[in-house]
């Protein structure tokens, strides 16, 4: 059997139920070859469940899926030859060293002992793990585990790679390294399906994004399309002279046609922008009216705002402490 589809993944109406709970409720996905596709959703949205069904790790209760044109339900063994899976929870053996793990997986994939050792060495080097080669995984840091996990998924040279929350729990520097690795994979022609809870991660990496919530796909598109569909970025202004706040509000309303949100105690004016270019118009209008400002910045919508707009409820992810400091690309305008 050979593969033949233009699409790396084509799934329609995927359903997974656990008892009477429907974790995935009719999800359609189409992922083109060579693309990075992001599945964005809060805790419990059904990201892992969807990925596991596509990776033959969970049975598909209803609907169908094809990987490079190969039916997942009918030909799981063939699909396993096409997909490299990096699970949400480290799928390497704790009691073995990094080298032993990679050699084990290499041998299972049919490499000779020599070839497996060579591939292991090569991968550990590319992932900056060569010093840890002989250490047991139980002594690895979270970031090292994730990298080893990804390395293990690449042993078979899979054309399609699934990454389930590749950077959750990593510090910003390690997250950056992981992003670089993923970009390199894509540059090499791999197709990547990744899940994440972070809009900025999807934004950084994904060509297209599907937003899922409670087992249902609520939106799909490029990150630009998503953000625009959600509406606006916000221009946050701070006035030098708080008493000018009414005058400032009038100027803003004249330029944008919308009333800004005011915080008079702080001299703050928050302007919703349909389009970030309008920020300049507002600033020029203020200059003409002789209103001076101390700070100005434009913020894109946060994941919370995207979710609120798309689903009518927030992400409910209390366990996301990074939300505030990762408040998505604040650009200084003035």
């Amino acid at each position: 059997m050979t593969t033949n589809s233009e699409l790396a993944v084509s799934a329609s109406g995927l359903v997974k139920t656990f008892g009477d709970f429907t974790a995935v409720d009719g999800i359609d996905l189409e992922i083109r070859r060579g693309e990075v596709f992001g599945v964005l959703g809060p805790n419990g949205a059904g990201k892992t469940t969807t990925l596991k069904m596509l990776a033959t790790l969970l049975s598909i209760d209803a609907g169908s899926a094809e990987i490079f044109g190969v039916d997942v339900k009918a030909y799981p063994h063939q699909v396993r030859q096409l997909v490299g899976v990096t699970g949400q929870y480290a799928s390497v053996d704790e009691n073995l060293t990094a080298t032993e793990n990679l050699v084990l997986f290499g041998r299972l994939l049919g490499m000779s002992g020599k070839a497996a050792r060579a591939a292991s060495e090569e991968l550990l080097e590319s992932f900056g793990l060569e010093e840890a080669a002989k250490r047991q995984i139980s002594k690895f840091s979270g970031g090292m585990r994730r990298r080893l996990d990804l390395a293990a998924s690449l042993l078979s040279r899979p054309p399609l790679i699934f990454l389930d929350e590749p950077t959750t729990g990593l510090d910003p520097r390690t997250r950056g390294q992981m992003w670089d690795t993923i970009r390199t994979l894509v540059a090499g022609g791999s197709t990547v399906l990744l899940t994440t809870q972070y809009l900025d991660e999807a934004d950084q990496l994904a060509d297209r994004i599907a937003v899922i919530d409670r087992g249902v796909k609520v939106a799909e598109g490029t990150s630009e399309q998503l953000k625009t569909s959600v509406g606006s970025s916000t221009l946050h202004l701070r006035l030098s002279d708080k008493s000018q706040i009414a005058a400032a509000a009038a100027v803003v309303e004249k330029v944008t046609g919308d009333r800004p949100v005011l915080t008079p105690e702080a001299g703050g004016v928050n302007v919703p922008l349909a389009d970030a270019d309008r920020a300049a118009d507002v600033l020029i209008g203020l200059r003409h009216a002789d209103i001076s400002i101390t700070t100005a910045n434009v913020q894109q919508p946060t994941l919370d705002e995207v979710f609120l707009a798309l689903t009518g409820h927030g992400t409910e992810s209390a366990e996301n402490p990074e939300q505030t400091d990762r408040n998505i690309h604040t650009e200084e305008v003035a």
Binding site: T2, T3, H77, Q81, R107, S126, G188, G189, T191
Partner: peptide, 27 residues
């Protein structure tokens, strides 16, 4: 790394229907 990984993506390869007896024993 790019050089290493570029060879990793080959979607159009022949797929095996099931593991052979020899492969099963070796695995």
């Amino acid at each position: 790394m790019a050089a290493l990984i570029s060879t990793y993506a080959v979607a159009d390869r022949p797929l095996r229907a099931h593991p052979s007896v020899g492969e099963t024993i070796s695995q």
